[in-house]
Computed example of a mutant assay.
Amino acid sequence: MTSPHTPITRAHKRTPVAIEVIVNGVLNQIEGRICDLSEGGARIDGASMPARSRCEIHYAGQVVYAIVMWSEFDRMGVRFPYELSHGPLFNALERARGAASAHPAQIFLSNRSPGFGRRGLS
């Protein structure tokens, strides 16, 4: 008897960031960059550890514990057993979300021609 596959929705919205971190494993210390962050986990590029291993992420004096959920040659996805709710990494996440929600500047709108294209064809 099989059950239909139901997609699992994420509990937290992932936000693109570029945060340099140090990842400590049991036997090694690796520099990496968090490229995708949420309260529940992150994608770290430039660092790789075996799946299901535990590690520490060091950023701005804060240590965040994580479990490697998947791993490739030069990147990995980690889950935080304790959701981010405070500290420098959470503050960086909030800043990134604030910057992403800001509207891009409306530049040169007054110089636009009323027609179609650069030449104002209609």
Rank of each mutant, 00 (worst) to 15 (best):
E31F: 13
R33T: 14
D36N: 09
L37R: 00
S38N: 07
S38L: 07
E39H: 02
G40Y: 09
G41C: 03
G41L: 03
G41A: 07
R43Q: 14
I44Y: 07
D45N: 01
A47M: 05
P50M: 03
P50N: 08
A51G: 05
R52N: 14
R52L: 07
R52W: 15
S53K: 03
S53A: 07
R54A: 10
E56I: 03
E56A: 12
E56C: 04
I57H: 01
A60V: 07
G61P: 00
Q62H: 13
V64S: 02
A66R: 01
M69Y: 10
S71E: 12
S71C: 14
S71H: 14
E72T: 11
F73V: 14
R75G: 09
G77F: 04
F80T: 03
F80I: 06
F80C: 10
P81M: 11
E83Q: 10
H86G: 02
G87M: 11
G87K: 02
P88A: 15
P88M: 13
L93N: 00
L93H: 00
L93V: 05
R95S: 13
A96L: 10
A96G: 01
A96H: 04
R97K: 07
A100L: 15
A102E: 13
A102K: 13
A102V: 04
H103V: 15
P104E: 05
P104C: 02
A105F: 04
Q106E: 15
Q106T: 07
Q106S: 13
I107A: 11
F108R: 08
L109K: 04
L109G: 14
S110G: 06
N111I: 03
R112F: 03
R112D: 04
S113Q: 09
S113G: 13
P114G: 01
G117R: 06
R119G: 08
